[in-house]
Design a binder for these strands. Structure first.
Length: 548
DNA sequence: CGGCTTTGACCGGCGC
DNA sequence: GCGCCGGTCAAAGCCG
């Protein structure tokens, strides 16, 4: 394959392959996409594909190519083995163009043929190599996915067990005080990390007399059901994008709640919290928006206080009613840095490129929530957690609770340890890990050692792992190592994918984080009766969140 | 013409 | 109660 050209598996059409100038082929790494290879054997399908008509042909053999003239009968002989060996439509088309040259009778010399056959052989080898690599990557992916699923199942099991035990326990403890409000304390702690979005759920929990009534006939839902854009509810507030978002999803939960109130309460609580948890990604980019594989529609722009750059608001448009939104804003200190803040979880399938970012943000949010849930309200020494969780100082992720919503910041703007960047077996390096999830199994160091944690005092008492927020206080941005161009935007998909793998593939990560936080908080707040529930709520969060 | 962006208006939360 | 601020709405305009 000529340099500067790439192979794209077009997942949007799910059936096409194409050769193109490789200026943006990083969006779709050669992972296991659902490509319909059987179509490659279909002659008609081959004819349908427009390979070079609107793109410049590869420079090596374009002088005699007449792309529009392809004699199919002559292709079969040459192409038959290629179908067998590679099954890739790309080769078929490529050779199709070449073959048309031969059929012209203009250049019928043997040398030309030999050269072409050599080239074909090379391409064949290359494709076989790619196939092998693809297989390998598929295996890696399935391995990671398997681990993740297993972990998820395990967490759910434990969550259910704990919840059962806990419910029994709380019934005894709280019966006298709360007239039998079941599990009021635990969800309460969970809810405390979010201000407004959790209030509704909180009301449900705090008012025992209303609880069952609201569960079965949610007051807001009665108004919101069937509303569309621009329709206001009783409060006069527009409900765009909300009637089908978590709030509406909670309708389903409420239905279920009739059957299993406690479990449902937990789920809706988690959902509400997830809606509020945010993941912020900092990346250097000249583009107005980083490419994360999703489709977004801008619905607003505001000048935010303290930043001369406007903040743009986007909504995911890949599916109707997808609750995911993001804010994009340039960093005030360094305008080459683009800060993208994600909120919510997708309610639809995602393309691989989008999956990478979504999984990353999900995993990061899970981290955040597991930390936030386990902490008490703004009383902790900021440095305590940092020292405990983060022995080393390099940082990539920031968990911040100073904002109205608990936020995780993934800083992809610098490489704290170039040596680790060069070694793919580094245990946990969010921004520059080269997608080697299997390395977790062999790594001796715990991933958590790569994360810097700072506790940020706030009413939500979140966790702050990091540097971004503290960049002005802790490490001047100028001191960061300069970023190579090829480590920036183009590699974002890989980077995010790596981060995803790092966070989701390692069962130890969340567990260790939760354990560390729990132990610290447990020590700092012996009276905090919610501490023992940390793991439980964390699991709830993770299991629900990972559903996407 | 449909989808997207722009932009002024509106709303709710929060601090004073 | 008032003003500030973040977030969202939706009409108008733009664009392919």
């Amino acid at each position: 394959m000529d340099k500067g050209w790439g192979l794209t598996l077009d997942t949007s059409s799910s059936q096409s392959l194409s050769l193109f100038p490789s200026n943006d082929n990083t969006m779709f790494p050669l992972l296991g996409f659902p490509v319909n290879l059987s179509r490659a054997a279909n002659k008609e399908a081959v004819g349908e594909v427009d390979f070079f008509s609107d793109r410049p042909p590869p420079p090596s053999h374009d002088h005699n190519v007449k792309p529009n003239i392809v004699k199919q009968e002559n292709l079969d002989e040459t192409l038959a083995p290629l179908h067998v060996n590679t099954g890739l439509q790309l080769l078929t088309a490529n050779t199709g163009s070449d073959q048309s040259t031969v059929d012209d009778g203009v250049s019928s010399d043997a040398e030309d043929k030999r050269a072409k056959s050599t080239e074909l052989a090379q391409l064949q080898v290359e494709l076989q190599r790619m196939n092998a690599e693809n297989k390998k990557l598929k295996e890696m992916l399935s391995h990671v996915t398997g681990n993740y699923t297993a972990l998820q199942m395990h967490l759910m099991t434990l969550m259910q067990q704990n919840h059962h035990a806990e419910t029994t326990e709380n019934e005894g403890k709280l019966e006298d005080k709360n007239h039998g409000v079941d599990g009021g304390k635990v969800p309460r702690q969970f809810l405390d990390i979010g201000p407004s979005g959790t209030a509704e759920v909180d009301d449900q929990l705090s008012d025992s007399s209303d609880e069952r009534t609201r569960s079965s006939t949610p007051q807001n839902n009665n108004v919101e059901v069937g509303t569309r854009d621009g329709v206001r509810n009783n409060n006069g507030k527009h409900e765009l994008g909300r009637e089908e978002s978590p709030e509406s999803e909670s309708q389903g939960y409420n239905k279920l709640q009739k059957m299993n109130p406690s479990n449902c309460m937990e789920q809706s609580t988690t959902e509400a919290t997830m809606r509020k948890a945010r993941v912020s990604v900092r990346a250097r980019s000249e583009a107005p928006m980083i490419s994360d594989g999703c489709q977004w529609r801008k619905y607003g722009q505001k000048m935010a206080k303290g930043n001369p750059c406007p903040r743009a608001y986007y909504r995911c448009t890949m599916a109707v009613g997808c609750p995911v939104r993001k804010q994009v804003q340039r960093c005030a200190e360094d305008r080459t840095i683009l800060v993208t803040t994600y909120e919510g979880t997708h309610n639809h399938p995602l393309p691989p490129a989008a999956m990478a970012m979504a999984s990353t943000t999900s995993a990061a949010a899970s981290m955040l929530l597991s930390g936030s849930m386990s902490s008490a309200e703004g009383m902790m020494n900021p440095n305590l957690l940092a020292r405990a969780i983060l022995p080393c100082s390099s940082s990539m992720a920031t968990l911040s609770a100073s904002a109205p919503f608990p936020t995780v910041t993934l800083d992809l703007t610098h490489n704290p340890n170039p040596l680790q960047f060069q070694r793919p077996s580094v245990p946990f390096q969010v921004p520059f890990l080269q997608g080697q999830p299997q390395s977790f199994g062999s790594g001796s160091a715990t991933p958590i050692a790569q994360v810097q944690a700072l506790y940020n005092q706030s009413k939500f008492s979140g966790l702050q792992l990091s540097q971004e927020v503290g960049s002005s206080q802790l490490a001047p941005q100028a001191s960061r190592p300069p970023l190579q161009p090829n480590q920036q935007q183009p590699s974002l998909a890989d980077t995010v994918s790596a981060a995803t793998a790092a966070i989701t593939a390692d069962p130890n990560f969340t567990a260790v984080l939760a354990a560390a936080i729990s132990s610290i908080i447990g020590g700092a707040h012996a009276n905090n009766n919610t501490t023992t529930n940390n793991n439980n709520t964390s699991r709830t969060t993770i299991s629900n969140f990972s559903g996407n």
